[in-house]
Computed example of a mutant assay.
Amino acid sequence: MHLFAVDGLPEIAAGDDLAALIDARVEFEDGDVLCVASTVVSKAEGRSYDYEDFEAGEWSRDIAARLESITGDEKDPRFAQAVIEESEELIVEAPFILAVTKFGHITVNAGIDRSNVPDGDLLLLPEDPSASAQRLSDALGVAVVVTDTSGRPFRYGQRGVAVGWAGMPASRDWRGEHDRDGRELGVTVQSVVDELAGAANLVAGEGDGGTPAVIVRDWEFGEHDGSENLFRDEEDDIVREALRDWEF
């Protein structure tokens, strides 16, 4: 298995044919997986907005005031309004906003980005990253993982995660297989799209030197059962339930 970045992609703007831009710079091989940053997918899909596009309501003003009192930094309630409008639920409102996006991903600020947005103040995640991945997969003939970066509980730093995928299962299921001592595995389900996203993020980099598309080559899913489950079901998510009752 090896990974390499797609070099030479221009700054992506609304309406750009992202698949064609990538295809012109890569000679794809059978079995390749394209990992592409959600930022460029969002830019191509016109998900850049200005603060003026969001009219702050009472709830967003309350959240901004509370965050400002905690952090000491000025908070624009229109940003909180954007998070609210992009979310199914706000699990935590302070000391940060932890949101459930409309497609099921749980992340800080609903994944809204304020970096590298040349034509706006805010960049929202794709409305349906798996649908975006499917369109790219159909156009390019390879599996696609749409990635983002996200923090983790109990650890410092961020890592790449999958927010959408197409052309391959989200995870491979080892349950029913055996370890080297012959013991049957009962719980191991490996989130391969997250692991590929994390590996791709190491190659892609961050900041102004980042490259938003990475090819994974010579990797195989293997003879395993696959699953499309990635985001934990609400009724089984005890961490989400505990955070709902937590107050800062």
Rank of each mutant, 00 (worst) to 15 (best):
E93P: 02
V189I: 04
E93G: 02
G182H: 14
M168D: 08
A99T: 14
S115I: 14
G167C: 08
P169D: 02
E184Y: 06
A139Y: 12
V203A: 04
I112F: 06
P126T: 02
L125I: 09
A162N: 05
E206C: 10
D179A: 00
A170Y: 12
L122G: 07
F96E: 13
V92T: 12
G157W: 15
L98E: 10
N201Q: 12
T188D: 09
G205Y: 00
I106E: 09
W219A: 12
V193Y: 03
A170N: 12
D121P: 04
L98M: 13
V187P: 01
V214W: 07
R180F: 15
D225S: 12
D121K: 08
T101H: 13
G209S: 13
A204E: 08
W174S: 09
R217C: 03
T107M: 05
V189A: 01
L98C: 11
E184N: 10
I215K: 04
G167T: 05
N201A: 13
L185R: 15
T147H: 00
L140S: 03
R175T: 08
E93D: 10
D225A: 13
D173T: 03
V144G: 07
P212E: 09
E195G: 04
A133T: 12
S191E: 15
V142I: 08
A131I: 01
S115K: 15
N116P: 00
G222V: 04
D138E: 15
T149L: 06
S227L: 00
R135L: 09
V214S: 03
I97M: 14
R152F: 02
A110R: 03
A197S: 07
D119T: 10
D173A: 05
D208L: 11
D121G: 04
R114P: 08
T107Y: 04
S137N: 13
T147A: 00
G120F: 00
E195I: 07
D138V: 07
L136V: 10
V193K: 09
D194S: 03
A166W: 07
P212K: 06
N229H: 09
S150P: 04
T188I: 09
T147M: 10
S227H: 05
T107K: 05
V108H: 06
L122Q: 06
P153W: 02
V92E: 04
I97Q: 12
G141H: 09
P153Y: 01
N109L: 03
G104K: 05
D208R: 14
A170L: 03
G141I: 11
P118A: 02
S132F: 04
I91A: 02
P118W: 06
G198F: 00
T147W: 05
A139Q: 11
R172D: 00
I97E: 08
V145G: 04
V214N: 06
R175H: 01
A131L: 01
V203C: 07
P95L: 05
S191T: 13
P129K: 03
G226Q: 02
D181A: 14
L136G: 02
E223M: 11
V100Q: 13
L136I: 10
G209F: 15
